[in-house]
Amino acid sequence: KPSILRIMDAIAEQLNDVDGQLKEHVLAHHADLAALLTSVKGVGPTTASTLLAQLPELGKLNRKQITSLAGLAPINRDSGTLRGQRHIFGGRADVRRVLYVAALVGTRFNPVLKAFYAKLIAAGKAKKVALVACMHKLLIILNAIARTKSPWRNDLAEAV
C-alpha cells in the first residue's frame, strides 16, 4: 500500500506539472483569445484551453463548418424513401465533451442559454436533445467571439 500511495503521489505531481505548463502556454501564446472565450458564462479555463488546442480553426470557419468539425451538426439518416432521425456524430470528441459540460453549466447560469434551453423543453424536446442544441448554439457563439475578437454580450448573443 505505501508503494502504491507513492506512485499515486508522483502521478498527481506530474499532473500538476502538466497543468501548470498548459496554463503558462495559454497565457504566453493565447491569452487574449482565452480571455474572450472565458467571458462567456459556462466556459472556464479547461474549456478554453481544450478549444484552443483541439479546435484551432475556431473563428476562421463559418457556423456550419465549425459545428460539423466538432461533430455537433445534425446528420440525417435517410435512404431512399426512409426518413430517419437526425443525429450528431463524428468530429472531435474532446471538443464535444468539454462543450457538453460548458452547456450544462450555461443552461443554469448563462441567461441566453438558459432561456434557449427552457424554450426547447417547453416545446417538448427531450432534455438531452435540448442540451445538444445548447452545445451547438454555444459553439456558434464562441466561434463568433473568436472571429470578431469581442467579448461576450447578452444582447448580441440573443440574435445568434
Rank of each mutant, 00 (worst) to 15 (best):
Q54N: 11
V95G: 11
V40N: 05
I11N: 09
K125D: 11
L61F: 03
S150G: 06
D32H: 10
L27Y: 09
K64Y: 14
I88K: 04
T38M: 14
L72D: 01
F89K: 08
L139Q: 00
T81S: 09
G90L: 08
I88G: 08
I140C: 11
I140R: 15
A103C: 07
E24D: 15
K125A: 12
K1G: 11
C134P: 03
H30I: 01
R108W: 07
T107N: 09
V112Y: 02
D155C: 06
D19N: 15
T50G: 03
A10E: 14
K127R: 11
K1T: 10
L69A: 06
R147D: 09
G71N: 08
G59M: 04
L104I: 04
I141R: 00
R108F: 05
A126K: 13
L69I: 03
G71H: 02
A130G: 09
A34D: 05
F89S: 10
G20K: 03
M8I: 05
L131Y: 00
R147V: 04
L142P: 02
G84Y: 02
L72W: 02
V98T: 09
A122D: 12
V132I: 12
V18D: 13
T67C: 15
L61E: 10
R96D: 04
I66C: 06
F109K: 08
L5G: 05
L104D: 11
L113D: 02
A157K: 02
L99M: 10
L139P: 03
I145D: 01
T81W: 07
G44H: 06
G124H: 08
L33C: 03
N143Q: 08
N62D: 15
V160F: 08
N154K: 09
G124L: 10
T107K: 06
D78C: 09
R83M: 13
I75Y: 07
A48L: 04
A93P: 00
A35H: 06
I7E: 10
F109E: 10
A103M: 05
Q21G: 12
L52K: 03
S49M: 06
V132A: 07
A126Y: 01
T67F: 02
H29W: 07
K125G: 09
T107H: 02
I4L: 15
